[in-house]
Amino acid sequence: MFKYILKRLLICIPVLITVVLIIFWMLNVLPGNPIEQMMGEKLKPDVVERLTEKWGLNDPWIVRFGRYIRDVFLHGDFGDSYKKNRPVIDLISESFPNTVKLAVSAALVAWLVGIPAGIVSAVKKNTIFDRLCMGFALCGISMPVFWAAMLLQFIFGYKLNLLPISGYTTWKHMILPAIVLGWSSSGSIARLTRSNLLEAMRNDYIRTARAKGLNEGGVIYKHALKNSMMPVVTTMAIQFAGLLSGATITETVFGIGGIGRLTVNALQTRDIPLLQGSIIFSTALIMIGNLVADIMYSFLDPRVRV
């Protein structure tokens, strides 16, 4: 088992480098000088030329890639953001806590909605309860995020004036973003809870328990639920890793300075060092999430080595 985990961890490194390579290459294929882009419409051509030369942007991209990989892996240096003139590490570590705040509160909403909805619809399979609960949970994953966000802002922030519309300084600010993001994540949790619970309830030991005369609540709670939660927990782990890697649109609409917005801004302004840094960061998070999930599975059943 230990060997397997180690192997998987080692594989992560080349995967990460490949991701960076692909992005580096694509950015290179793109027309557009980062300096011109960053400094805007008013920049004079001679300044562009001077800085392009000075920052080594005239070198072939493969040279720059080599330099970048060397700096990152040998010196742990992610470079400075072109646009912000500050170390990439600083910018990421500044934005990450906000993303964490959002991720934790969104995950809470997702679990509080998703798990009960899934349980109800499994217990009441094919009844109106089933449809209503699943319908509610699925609505979240069936709306454009920015639209749901806008409607909630409009209703709760503007019409009812109960909650702040934008920002992230207090916990109250996090409620609307958490609902938007959490609701959209709850659908999958509800689905998985439902199908796993249904599966578990058909198992022999549940039948035995029922036959022994245990009451239904006890059966569901003590046996079925316990045994069916493992895959759900796994999903929650991956989903959480995904949330931690940033939710661009939610962050943009609610004015939250998180990783997602940082990354998209970096892409739009061709801030290559910042973009690389934040992509490495979020990719690593997603990979860890995937890894945890795979390990959990292979733990459950050693035959699985995906």
Binding site: L108, K124, F129, G217
Partner: peptide, 22 residues
């Protein structure tokens, strides 16, 4: 009968959960 009670309880948990965050 008990099935229905459980279901109701669970719905309540859900509603409470929502209320707690909202």
């Amino acid at each position: 009968m008990s099935k229905k009670i459980i279901a109701l309880l669970l719905v309540m948990v859900m509603v409470l959960g929502l209320a707690a965050c909202g």
